[in-house]
């Protein structure tokens, strides 16, 4: 670990520092939004939104490299495509309930298919693996700024509408009876999920980001009584998993995303087993 801490100070490998900062900042948003995802049981929706982001990443690269539109970065593309998917899924689940799962599955795959097409038509060699499984070399200073801004947005909305989000997630019908615009808050929540998921795509990648969104909250959910407690603890767990994963990946020269997810998965598994053993002892 000393090796890792020294490396963080080394100006020649600034990307490691950026990755850690991005991970810590992103963990705040992940803890908050992940808690809603776990409590409302919509991780498959978050999964579809994350995977569909590949289409935006592909489009961003294509526009940047092939058409020379410099400002259209892959991350911007990812944000746009994730938001569009979130809106489509939200509308389908609110207003056309019957085939919600089909639409979610379709968006999941169509997003990836479109992304892959863009990537193959973009000149030069682009490694899709970087986006699918994360690559901390891709993190720039601008990304840190983006993550920071999104954190602030999520914190403000989360604090302002906490009671409403809670009611909408717990009992949609009752929330509607209390005069709350359930559709609006549900769509807002899905949009926040879309923004959050994109934050960590560069670190853990599209395929694995969903685990980092849900596992810390699932661990926190084992012992928290209230949603806000769960948010605080899942943010802390998310930070811990990210830092440990980064450390391992640096020391043993292994892929960052995989390490972070495996740490998260291992902790979750241990906690679930420990929890059930504790319960058995009590009874």
């Amino acid at each position: 670990m000393v090796e890792f801490i020294n490396a963080l100070r080394n100006p020649d490998i600034a990307f490691l520092r950026y990755a850690l900062i991005a991970g810590m900042l992103g963990s705040i948003a992940f803890g908050i939004v992940g808690t809603y995802v776990v409590a409302r049981r919509i991780s498959y929706i978050a999964g579809a939104i994350a995977h569909s982001a590949l289409s935006g990443i592909g489009a961003g690269l294509y526009l940047q490299i092939k058409l020379g539109i410099g400002w259209f970065t892959p991350i911007l593309g990812a944000v746009i495509s994730a938001l569009i998917s979130a809106m489509i899924i939200g509308y389908v689940s609110l207003y056309a309930r019957q085939r919600e799962d089909t639409v979610i599955g379709a968006i999941w795959a169509i997003g990836m298919a479109a992304g892959l097409l863009f990537l193959t038509r973009t000149p030069g060699y682009i490694e899709p693996m970087s986006y699918l499984f994360g690559n901390i070399l891709l993190i720039s200073k601008n990304d840190l700024l983006l993550v920071g801004v999104l954190d602030v947005v999520i914190l403000i909305l989360g604090a302002l509408f906490y009671n409403k989000f809670l009611a909408v997630c717990f009992d949609e019908e009752f929330a509607r009876l209390r005069g709350i615009r359930v559709g609006f808050y549900y769509l807002l929540l899905l949009c926040l999920i879309a923004l959050t998921v994109v934050l960590m795509v560069t670190i853990v990648g599209i395929v694995m980001v969903i685990a980092l969104l849900t596992l810390p909250s699932a661990v926190a959910g084992l012992f928290c009584r209230q949603l806000w407690q769960m948010m605080i603890f899942s943010s802390l767990f998310c930070m811990l998993f990210t830092a440990l994963g980064l450390g391992f990946s640096y020391i043993y020269d292994l892929p960052t995303g995989s390490n972070i997810i495996l740490v998260a998965g291992a902790v979750y598994l241990l906690c679930v087993i420990g929890n059930s053993l504790l319960k058995r002892r009590k009874t």
Binding site: Y162, K164, C169, F170, D171, R178
Partner: peptide, 25 residues
């Protein structure tokens, strides 16, 4: 209701005091 949802009795009853136009705690 979802038996795993993290809410206390207080949280649940407070929902009866929600108003559409009011934000914050």
């Amino acid at each position: 209701f979802d038996p795993q949802f993290p809410v206390t009795v207080m949280d649940v009853v407070l929902m009866g005091r929600l108003e559409g136009r009011r934000a914050g705690p």
